[in-house]
């Protein structure tokens, strides 16, 4: 739900301000790749209506966000491709593919794709964090969006602890990826929490 909320916050922000300054389209592209790799099972496996609906919403809304930022004026006119230039193609995709291949529990296409998607998701925030560090001043809605985008993985960790004790659920790759992903946010969360505590604008060092 937090993940869904962060997407809705971002959509709302783009529609309201008609600007995507401070938003990394490259992060959304990473997520689009994550979703396409992971949700291939839409074609051969049914878990629940909720699960299927969320997958479809995540994929379609992420592609829509990319479309808005890259191609749909007036939002696309504000997209700064020089600032948002983190080369995830080299730095993230390659390593995620290699890690996906060597750490997959089983050498099947869906399993390798799933594993690579977990590793890629864990670092997908990097283009966004690096963009914000260049700009330093973070708009309120952008701060809420990034905070919810980080918080959802933290709540997964709580759920994993519950599932471990309640069902004996084990998911080593997911756990490790989740810890890396949440860890990358810790710094941002600190400055976000401070800005909320003091009621000031979020400014990164």
């Amino acid at each position: 739900m937090l993940h869904l909320m962060s997407i809705l916050l971002l959509l709302w922000k783009l529609k309201k301000s008609k600007s995507c300054v401070g938003i990394s389209c490259r992060m959304q592209e990473c997520y689009a790749i994550v979703f396409c790799l992971r949700y291939l099972d839409l074609f051969y496996q049914f878990i629940s209506v909720y699960n299927t609906a969320m997958k479809v919403v995540f994929i379609s809304s992420t592609f829509y966000l990319i479309f808005l930022m890259r191609f749909q004026p007036p939002v696309s006119a504000t997209y700064d491709r020089t600032a948002d230039s983190f080369p995830y193609e080299q730095y993230l995709l390659g390593p995620a593919a290699v890690l996906g291949f060597i750490s997959a529990e089983e050498w099947s296409i869906p399993e390798i794709f799933w594993t690579a998607s977990i590793w890629l998701e864990s670092v997908s925030i990097l283009p966004q964090l690096i963009l914000l560090q260049q700009l330093r001043e973070v708009e309120n809605l952008t701060a809420e969006f990034v905070a919810t985008m980080g918080a959802y993985r933290f709540f997964y960790i709580l759920n994993w602890i519950y599932r471990y004790f309640a069902e004996g659920y084990v998911n080593w790759i997911g756990w490790l990826g989740g810890i890396v992903q949440t860890g990358l946010y810790v710094d941002f969360f600190y400055y976000y929490a401070m800005s909320k505590w003091y009621g000031q604008k979020l400014v990164l060092p």
Binding site: H3, N51, M54, K55, Y169, V170, N171
Partner: peptide, 10 residues
């Protein structure tokens, strides 16, 4: 238990 089979999380 085999938590890896049929990933049920998003």
């Amino acid at each position: 238990q085999d938590g890896q089979k049929g990933h049920d999380e998003l």
